[in-house]
């Protein structure tokens, strides 16, 4: 009986140690990928290829969802605000909710599903087919050749994607609010411009999306690199990427919002 309790305790300890270990491994991994920049010359082509995979190919899903989210916000905002006769405030509702929260968060979630899972699967398969170990045999550091360009591509793409998402979303709100429902265009834009501050709203949103870009790409490349090199292991790693990245984004968003907008 006593042994049983101790066994349970040991299991708990193992569980905790395992998680702390993998956190530490991922930290070292990130550090090495970022700072092993010696001989980075000639890697520009690699970075551009990854920017294409991670950024350009995510463009369609980001644009389409941005458009629809902006349109829905316009429609919902209108149907509520018209009761108080202040439908001119739809512009600032759409702009503020997109710039502060929905833009960075939804883009990060889509990014995790679209680009993060692809990164994990690609790197995991490279590991399973022993491409990573053969690179090491040839004296090429896979962290430099494979991980670093993917990481940087994710970090660079994410704020750009979020900016595009915000803009398309606001245009969607304009489309529904002004062109369809007939809100007066002048009050729509001027209300928006008066409510939105460049540093507080646009700037903080961009900071958020940069942080989310770092976190999502970090999780994605680490999960791929750390995957068990079997088909089942890769599928688990891909799932983990999407789940961990989404949860981390939502949790971090709360913390960032609390820090940035707490005085409101």
């Amino acid at each position: 009986m006593k042994l049983d309790v101790l066994d349970r305790l040991a299991q708990l300890g193992q569980f905790g140690l395992g998680h702390v270990q993998s956190l530490g491994r991922s930290g070292i991994f990130l550090f090495l990928a970022i700072f092993s920049r010696a001989g980075f010359t000639g890697r520009g082509a690699l970075l551009i290829r990854q920017l294409y995979n991670v950024g350009v190919l995510s463009l369609i899903i980001v644009t389409v969802s941005g458009l629809f989210i902006g349109m829905v916000l316009g429609l919902q905002g209108y149907s509520i605000l018209i009761r108080y006769g202040s439908e001119g405030a739809v512009g600032q509702l759409v702009a503020l909710s997109l710039l502060r929260e929905l833009g960075p968060v939804v883009t990060a979630l889509l990014f995790a599903g679209r680009a993060g899972s692809a990164l994990t699967a690609e790197i995991g398969l490279m590991k399973a087919t022993e491409q990573l170990s053969s690179m090491e045999m040839m004296g090429v550091d896979p962290l430099k050749r494979v991980i670093a360009p993917r990481f940087w591509a994710g970090v660079i793409s994410m704020p750009l994607l979020a900016a595009i998402f915000n803009l398309v979303g606001i245009l969607g709100g304009v489309m529904v609010g002004v062109d369809w429902l007939g809100i007066y265009e002048g009050s729509f834009w001027s209300g928006m411009q008066q409510a939105v501050d460049f540093v507080d709203d646009v700037g903080n949103g961009m900071v958020k999306s940069l942080v989310f870009g770092i976190v999502v790409t970090w999780i994605a490349v680490f999960q791929g690199y750390d995957a068990i090199p079997t088909s089942e292991g890769i599928s688990r790693a891909t799932t983990r990427t999407v789940v961990y990245a989404s949860l981390t984004v939502l949790g971090l968003d709360f913390i960032l919002t609390a820090v940035m907008f707490s005085e409101l």
Partner: peptide, 10 residues
């Protein structure tokens, strides 16, 4: 997009 957000939206 960022420039438009700065000029037109904010």
């Amino acid at each position: 997009a960022l420039v438009v957000l700065a000029v037109k939206v904010s």
